Amino acid sequence: MSAISKRRERERAQRHQLIITTARELAEAEGWEAVTTRRLADRVEYSQPVLYSHFNGKDAIMSAVALEGFGELADRLRHARLAAPEPPQALHAVCRAYLEFASEQPALYQAMFVLPTDVKFGHAETPPALRAGFDEFVNCFRPDNPRRELFAEVTWSALHGMAVLSESGRIPPDRQPERLDFLVTQIAGSRHETSHHRS
Rank of each mutant, 00 (worst) to 15 (best):
M62A: 13
Q89M: 04
Q48V: 15
R10I: 02
T194V: 15
V44S: 01
A60N: 01
P106H: 13
A80W: 05
A124S: 09
A83R: 10
M162Q: 05
L130K: 12
A132M: 04
S166G: 15
H92I: 06
L115Q: 00
L130V: 11
H160M: 07
P106E: 06
A129E: 14
P127A: 12
M162R: 02
Y52R: 15
P146N: 04
A84Q: 02
A34P: 01
S5R: 15
A97G: 01
A29K: 07
D181K: 15
E104H: 04
H79L: 10
P173K: 11
E72S: 10
R10H: 02
E11S: 04
E149R: 15
S195F: 11
P177V: 09
G122S: 05
H16V: 06
L18E: 14
F182Q: 11
L26Y: 02
A152E: 01
H123R: 07
L40K: 07
P177I: 09
N139R: 12
S195V: 08
S168L: 08
T155Y: 02
L180N: 09
R78F: 00
A34D: 02
T21F: 07
D144A: 11
Y46R: 14
P173I: 02
H192A: 03
F141R: 02
Q105G: 01
L159H: 04
H197N: 10
A152N: 01
N145V: 03
R81Y: 05
R147S: 11
T36E: 12
A102E: 03
A83N: 12
